Amino acid sequence: MAQARGSDADSGPIKVGRAEAARWSGALDLLRLVRARPGVTRAEAARVLGVGSGTATEICSRLRALDLLSEHPAPPSGRGRPTTTLHAHPDGPLVAVVDIRQAEWRVAVADLEGALSEPATGRHGSKRPEQVLAAVGEAVAAIGERHGTRVRAVAVSAAATVRRERFVQSSVLGWRDVEVAPLLPGVPQVLGNDATLAGLAEARLAHPGRSVLYLTIEVGIGGVYVDGDRAVTGATGAGGEFGHVPFGEPGLACPCGATGCWDVAVDGRAVARRLGEPEPDDPRAYLIEALVDPRARAAVAACSTSLGRGAAGLANVLDPEVVCFGGLAPEVRRAAPDAFAAAFEAGLMGFRRDDPPELIASALGPDAFLLGAAEAAFDAVLTEQSIGDWTAARFA
C-alpha cells in the first residue's frame, strides 16, 4: 500500500523513522491500556496516562491512521465534552495462539482486545512431537493465509516445561527437549508452559496489578506466581513448576524423574492409586468422574487436603494477595471443602491466619490457556520495533 493511508486529517502525514521514537512511547502506552481495558474512553485514557486531551487526541489520530486503533462515540454521560471509546482496529494486528493438551490441541486468532476467534481443534493421532506440531502448523498456516501480514506473532502454550524457548520436558505428552520450528516463518514466536500462561492471563485480566499465586489441576498441578502483571519464571523460564515440589508422598516416583512430587498427589492418578486401581490413561477425565462418585469420596478428600496444604506452603513462601485456582482445582476444593480449609489453615504460618490471602476460582474458564498465549504474543507485538515493522509493512 503505497498511498496516503499513512496520512490523517487530524495529524498530518505519518512519519516513520528514528526521529519518531520518543513519540512511540505514548502510543505504545495507549495501545497497552486499550489491551488491558478495551472500550476505555479517550478522556479516561488521557487521565490514566497523565497527558492532556489534545495529546490524547493526536495519539489516537496517529494510531487510527496506522490501523492500530479505532474509536467509537461514547454514550452521552451528562455534562462535559463528548468523547470516544477506544478499540482494536478491524484491520489491526492479530496473533495466532496455540494450546497443546494431553489429548488434543486448539488454535485460535486473537486481536488487540483479547477476543478469540476462528477456533480450530484436533485430537492427537500420535503424541510424537513432529506429528502434533505438523497438525498444529497446518492450522496456523491457514490463519496466515487468511490474514497475511496482519498476523504479527505466534504463541504456543503446552503442558510442558519451557526452558530457553524449548519444551524440555512433558510428562503428559512424553516429550523431551523439543524444539519448535517457526510455525509462521518470519513471524516472532513465543513458547510457554500452559499453567504459566493461564496464570498470567488470570492475573492481568481479572486481578491487574495484584500479586497472584495461580494453581491449576489438569494432569498434575501447575501454576505460576505473577507479581505486578509479570510472571516470575526464573533465570531460564523454567520456574513455576509447583507440581514438582515435594508436597506429595515421600518416595513416590514422578514421571518427571523426582520423588515425592505434589503433581501426583492431587489428580486422577492419586485418586486411582488410593482406590487401588491402575493408573488411568486420561487422569483428567478420571478425576472428573471421581468427583461425583460416592465410592471415591475419601480419595478426593485426600487430594483436597493435599491441595490445601500445598497452597498454604506456597502462600507462606510467596506472600500473594490472591490465590487463584484454575482447571479442576476449584472442583477438588468444592468436593471436600472442610478438608481443604483445615489443611490450608493448618499450613499457614501463625501470623498469616489473621489476614490470609484471598482464595478464589478462576474467572477465565477453559480459554485461560489461549488467553495467556495471547498475552505473551502481544507482549512481543507491543514494542517499538514491532510497531515500526507493522508501519513499514502496511505503508511502505
Results as ranks from 00 to 15, higher is better:
9 A>W: 15
10 D>T: 13
22 A>V: 07
25 S>F: 12
27 A>P: 12
29 D>F: 09
29 D>V: 07
34 V>N: 12
35 R>N: 06
36 A>E: 07
36 A>I: 02
43 A>Y: 03
43 A>E: 09
47 R>Q: 13
50 G>N: 08
52 G>A: 07
52 G>Q: 10
53 S>Q: 15
54 G>W: 01
55 T>V: 09
58 E>A: 15
60 C>V: 12
64 R>N: 06
64 R>M: 13
66 L>E: 15
73 P>S: 03
75 P>M: 01
78 G>E: 06
78 G>A: 10
89 H>N: 09
92 G>Q: 05
99 D>Y: 01
101 R>Y: 11
107 V>I: 02
112 L>S: 04
112 L>V: 02
113 E>R: 05
113 E>H: 10
117 S>L: 09
124 H>C: 07
125 G>A: 15
126 S>V: 11
136 V>L: 01
139 A>F: 04
140 V>D: 00
152 R>D: 00
154 V>A: 03
158 A>I: 12
164 R>W: 02
173 L>E: 00
174 G>M: 11
177 D>H: 06
188 P>V: 03
193 N>W: 06
197 L>M: 14
200 L>D: 05
203 A>N: 02
205 L>R: 13
205 L>K: 04
205 L>T: 05
214 Y>V: 08
215 L>K: 08
217 I>A: 06
221 I>R: 00
223 G>W: 01
228 G>T: 10
231 A>V: 04
231 A>E: 00
232 V>I: 14
235 A>Y: 03
236 T>S: 14
237 G>W: 00
239 G>A: 06
239 G>N: 05
242 F>C: 05
244 H>Q: 09
249 E>F: 03
250 P>Y: 07
252 L>S: 13
253 A>W: 09
257 G>W: 12
259 T>G: 09
286 Y>M: 05
290 A>R: 11
290 A>L: 03
295 R>V: 04
297 R>H: 14
297 R>C: 08
302 A>W: 10
303 C>N: 12
304 S>H: 07
304 S>A: 15
307 L>I: 13
315 A>M: 07
331 E>W: 11
338 D>T: 13
340 F>P: 00
354 D>R: 15
358 E>S: 12
369 F>A: 12
374 A>C: 07
390 W>P: 04
394 R>N: 09
395 F>C: 08
